[in-house]
Design a protein around this nucleic acid. Sequence first.
DNA 1: TGTAGTAAGTCTTGAAAGTGAACTTAGTCA
DNA 2: TGACTAAGTTCACTTTCAAGACTTACTACA
Lengths: 153, 153
Amino acid sequence: MRWNDLDRENCSLSRTLAVIGDRWTLLVLRDAFLRVRRFEDFQASLGIARRVLTERLKLLVDEGVLKKVAYQERPLRYEYRLTEKGIGLYPALVALVHWGDEHYAGKKGPPLLHRHLSCGHDFRSVMTCSECGEALDPRDVKPHAGPGARKRA
Amino acid sequence: MRWNDLDRENCSLSRTLAVIGDRWTLLVLRDAFLRVRRFEDFQASLGIARRVLTERLKLLVDEGVLKKVAYQERPLRYEYRLTEKGIGLYPALVALVHWGDEHYAGKKGPPLLHRHLSCGHDFRSVMTCSECGEALDPRDVKPHAGPGARKRA
DNA sequence: TGTAGTAAGTCTTGAAAGTGAACTTAGTCA
DNA sequence: TGACTAAGTTCACTTTCAAGACTTACTACA
């Protein structure tokens, strides 16, 4: 199977991964959330091959995860910013980071903490149920076919 | 940069991606959460090349995300099950699925729904603050250097 | 005893994607 | 004029992936 075929699969995870399911893409997004915006800055920060960076940024822009915004004219130059759709990936990214903090941080602790400005504390994200507000235990969740289901979910 | 070098980077996301940041790996984990456990079943379900599946399963076992459990002797055969560490990836996976539901589900709606057994409703996951319990707005979060920080976060 | 079947890999070969360095373009600055 | 900058593009080379055939160790059937 080719990766471009993934978006035709009837699974929201496949379709998500067809857009952002590539290591570089997720690192680009991490940087974007840390306010990196320009081509040279992404390149220097990640050490990514320039051709690959060009390709990934283009895909993210085409998918509406990032948008190009001119930051100067003559010479015309653009920077890349997260759209609302892109910001919607924050929970997933934070969940991955916190999983890494938990299992791969060294003795000293995690390299980066997240502060919740409105309460003032460093936090970990907790996945809760949109309906009852309780914290979710994976064993307390049952997947079932939804309205868009075909044969395989 | 090689991908094996990623785990030496001082960033929890890099270290996480060195383990699970590969499209196939995440799809393997999706299947694992849907109770797929055997080599042949993963292979048939995903259409993944057998060599790549072998490799990915081995990495996940080496990293303690999956464990091999014998389900019969003579011939000795193993199945792959999520460990506690693997189950810890559930929030991230659900967040990715829900992002896909939101942006890529067709007119009919998402192919798969998640029911919270203890409250009985289909839900979406909401990221909340472990300290104050409020839902988190990405704009209300400020990352800052943690105890394990080196020069770059 | 021979034949087929099963589960979990392993091997092989051509195609695709990634890597690093040099090059290009359009403009500024001194 | 010459050096510099940002954002790519091009090129030669290496690594990884895809698809399918093959292997191993055992069971079940006739």
